[in-house]
Amino acid sequence: MDKSSISKRRKCQTVELSPLEKSLINLLQHGLPVCERPFAQIAEEVSSTEEEVIACLNNLRSEEVLTRFGPMFDAASLGGAFTLAALSVPEEDFDFVTEQVNSFDQIAHNYRRDHDYNMWFVIATESAEEIEQVVQAIENKTGLKVLNVPKLKEFYVCLYLPV
């Protein structure tokens, strides 16, 4: 593992959570009821008070244990086009190619992975045509062939990370 990924991992240290924090994180991954005072209803379920639940959640949010709190939108309804793409980057060029690829605004996420295809990124654009243009531009800039694997079918998931 290189130095930069070690420091990244330190920044993402596991935090100690109180029993109330744990219950709220577990419960709210499944969803918040849609009603006037949702936190009062949640408070009942975790045997706490509305005030305490709100304070606790705001604290988790500001500590970034929760990265987001609110409606999860279907990506397609936000418009635009997406694809997942990969490059097989020679080790000695890796940092340079990372800079080249990340310089495109249309690159939303980019991860290094342990495989011959060692760089995996999401391209998000306004239109399908723009995806093609970005792929072409990355190939021209890096001199590497892009593996472009857009989704053909998305399956509904039920991710649950209990604490």
Binding site: L24, Q29, L32, P38, L66, T67, F69, M72, F73
Partner: peptide, 9 residues
């Protein structure tokens, strides 16, 4: 909207 939820890190 898929759900209204907390997204943990």
């Amino acid at each position: 909207i898929r759900r209204i939820a907390a997204v943990p890190n």
